[in-house]
Design a protein around this nucleic acid. Structure first.
Lengths: 165, 165
DNA sequence: CAAAAGTATCTGAACGTCGAGATATCTCAG
DNA sequence: CTGAGATATCTCGACGTTCAGATACTTTTG
């Protein structure tokens, strides 16, 4: 059994033919990261659709949910956790508030500030969707042993660290 | 020395506190993949800007470049390789053609078809940008040994395969 | 305490992507 | 050959994101 090849193997082979002078090593890892993330994004949508959620809505709800009681965060903190811009977060909170999944209220300690709170309805939706997402993702990882998953997590962490300085 | 922790460690710890009933294992791997990809996307933009390119333009040029002489692909093939929709590809080719980086011509063998060709100017731009991108990505991976990079590539490949069936 | 610098959030226009549908062409069974 | 279905590409309106700048408030400085 010769190990199966993926799209990135083809891409690297093509480059090796076209540019044998270049060290294509980085592609082996980082192209796979990008493509895998893209596939994950595309299929996550299926899970969310079952709960009448969009992916970007989920990202906000999930940040509020794991903050714990009373499920409150400022837009600024939500921006940090979701890696989007402040204008985007304003829009997202608007839409979620219109659907009754969060509320927006003034921060009593800082009159510039706003507090976004997960509603009970929002909590129910996000809990259901999150649990299903975990199930789905567990299936994606089923092909790896526990040891391999640990390795993978450890290696990815070390790539992630430089971005979080 | 206790290993450094990243954002995902914090996220998992928060979830463990909030939902000790759930198996959060998938997050350790897949959250890192998503966040890393997002960071890669954000910083890739810096490299491209030096060559007056946008990331989405680069994706198209690079697919044509590695196709080899005569650097031609149909919009359909470009769609497959870049994981975007056909409408998006039409727009991208429009913009690249307007900038003189590609040309669009009818396919002589299939009158429904179109052939997108990389111009000499397009080739020069993409070669310069690609080489610089590789340098930059190599630096990101410098913290890993060759053996670790291989491991990582192998594990990511096995996660990618199910999406490519 | 006043002025300057910093911070939190929102606004609005420009932009790229998507998704459904339209058009034109090709393929193949009958 | 003909008609049905498949295929390749494009059109276009809706949408979410970005970016720069505006606003309002807070903190720091002298």
């Amino acid at each position: 059994m010769t190990g199966a090849t993926d799209d990135v193997d083809d891409i690297v082979a093509a480059w090796r033919r076209e540019r044998p002078d270049l060290d294509l090593g980085p592609l082996e890892v980082l192209s796979r990261v990008s493509r895998l993330a893209r596939h994950l994004d595309l299929t996550r949508g299926e899970t969310f659709a079952e709960h009448q959620l969009e992916g970007y809505e989920f990202d906000v709800l999930v940040a509020l949910r794991r903050a714990g009681t009373p499920y409150q965060l400022s837009p600024g903190r939500l921006v940090q956790q979701t890696l989007v811009t402040s204008g985007t977060m304003t829009n997202r909170v608007d839409r979620l508030a219109a659907r009754g999944l969060v509320t927006r209220s003034p921060d009593p300690d800082d009159r510039r500030g706003v507090i976004v709170t997960l509603t009970e309805a929002g909590k129910e939706v996000v809990d259901a969707a999150f649990s299903e997402l975990l199930d789905r993702e567990r299936r994606l990882l089923a092909g790896l042993s526990a040891r391999e998953r640990d390795q993978l997590a450890r290696l990815l962490r070390s790539l992630l660290l430089p971005f979080e300085a």
